[in-house]
Amino acid sequence: MELKKPLLEVRDFAVHFKQYGKGLHRKDIQVISNFTLDLYAGEILAIVGGSGSGKSLLAHAILGILPANAYTSGSIKYKGEELTPKKKEQLRGREISLIPQSISYLDPLMKTGHQIGSPLQNLKGTVKNIMKRFQLAELVEQKYPFQLSGGMARRVLIGTALSSGAQLIIADEPTPGLHKSMVDETLSSLKELANNGRGVLMITHDIDLAFIIADKIAVFNKGVSVEIADAKLFEASPDNVAHPYSKALWHALPQNGFHSIRGMDYGNYIDAVQHSGDGEA
């Protein structure tokens, strides 16, 4: 019997930033280290960790959109094939799609309707359905991003990714600023994609959202994946996870006592990103 192969394989992956100080002295800062995961078609895997812990950098690395002063080591494979820079460019927006954290990713010179159903995607018939699903009025189709509210722009970003036909969807904090009904619709859409055989990698600091939607949770702390756990078992009890940070995340939830998490140091990561010219964490 042939074993099922992962849609996405990440092995011993690391991200470094190069910085130059006085006298052109070079300093390297490592913000992700020894990261390993497997994501299968039909599965939702959530990467959970504090804000500024480097989670978004993994998404940017998969897509090939890291800042110019970043370099990587380790391996990322899609459908068993190494994701080289050329391969990432070929697949980006086609087979691998991003729901980004920032609404600035929308093209400021393109109307909403064209962004949701671009010629690249060739899915014009889906535009009106997606707009209706995310409660976007018909007139929004002819508006530019600067004419949209923050919540509307985020819904357009989600619709753009859903219409892409991609096999791998990377959702980077997809729900902040959305009304609860739209949060529920977004999660439902991601679940629907997984049920239709797509792979979904969701990046979030909200572990409660991960419990709702994910099959597995990768706990991320200080640029390291400390463990990968079954989402339902993790939700049920902290005894079902091994790492102290995972247990601390569980106890930090309001329904579990709302205990604070101490000892998180993201100074190196924040410093590296500020010097890269890319402010997204």
Results as ranks from 00 to 15, higher is better:
residue 63 L to C: 04
residue 141 E to I: 02
residue 273 V to S: 14
residue 113 G to P: 02
residue 194 A to M: 04
residue 185 E to H: 09
residue 96 I to F: 04
residue 14 A to H: 12
residue 200 V to C: 01
residue 138 E to V: 03
residue 228 I to P: 01
residue 219 V to F: 05
residue 203 I to Q: 07
residue 23 G to S: 12
residue 95 E to L: 00
residue 173 E to I: 05
residue 47 I to E: 11
residue 23 G to W: 13
residue 120 L to E: 02
residue 146 F to A: 09
residue 117 G to C: 15
residue 55 K to L: 06
residue 89 E to W: 11
residue 168 L to N: 02
residue 72 T to Q: 09
residue 190 L to A: 07
residue 13 F to H: 02
residue 220 F to I: 01
residue 159 G to N: 13
residue 141 E to W: 01
residue 277 G to M: 11
residue 27 K to H: 08
residue 281 A to I: 03
residue 81 E to W: 04
residue 277 G to N: 11
residue 135 Q to V: 00
residue 90 Q to N: 13
residue 233 L to P: 00
residue 50 G to T: 07
residue 187 L to M: 07
residue 65 I to L: 12
residue 80 G to N: 03
residue 104 S to V: 03
residue 154 R to D: 08
residue 139 L to N: 15
residue 246 S to E: 08
residue 145 P to A: 05
residue 5 K to S: 11
residue 198 R to N: 02
residue 252 A to K: 01
residue 1 M to I: 10
residue 240 N to S: 10
residue 64 G to T: 05
residue 239 D to R: 13
residue 83 L to W: 09
residue 124 K to V: 10
residue 172 D to V: 00
residue 93 G to F: 10
residue 63 L to M: 04
residue 69 N to C: 00
residue 239 D to A: 15
residue 131 M to S: 08
residue 122 N to G: 09
residue 177 G to Y: 06
residue 8 L to G: 11
residue 136 L to G: 03
residue 182 M to D: 08
residue 51 S to L: 02
residue 240 N to I: 12
residue 202 M to G: 04
residue 205 H to S: 11
residue 127 V to R: 14
residue 144 Y to D: 13
residue 154 R to N: 09
residue 4 K to E: 09
residue 69 N to K: 02
residue 269 Y to C: 15
residue 129 N to Q: 14
residue 137 A to Q: 13
residue 2 E to F: 11
residue 183 V to N: 01
residue 185 E to S: 07
residue 80 G to S: 01
residue 268 N to E: 15
residue 24 L to W: 14
residue 21 G to I: 11
residue 85 P to F: 13
residue 66 L to T: 09
residue 18 K to R: 15
residue 176 P to A: 11
residue 84 T to K: 06
residue 241 V to H: 03
residue 177 G to D: 14
residue 47 I to W: 09
residue 267 G to Q: 09
residue 228 I to S: 01
residue 178 L to Y: 06
residue 107 D to G: 01
residue 215 D to C: 03
residue 77 K to F: 08
residue 21 G to C: 15
residue 27 K to S: 08
residue 163 S to G: 11
residue 107 D to H: 02
residue 236 A to Q: 10
residue 1 M to N: 06
residue 58 L to Y: 01
residue 83 L to D: 10
residue 143 K to I: 01
residue 196 N to L: 12
residue 197 G to F: 03
residue 256 N to E: 02
residue 78 Y to V: 03
residue 216 K to E: 10
residue 221 N to R: 14
residue 185 E to C: 04
residue 140 V to G: 00
residue 254 P to V: 06
residue 176 P to W: 07
residue 167 Q to K: 05
residue 277 G to I: 10
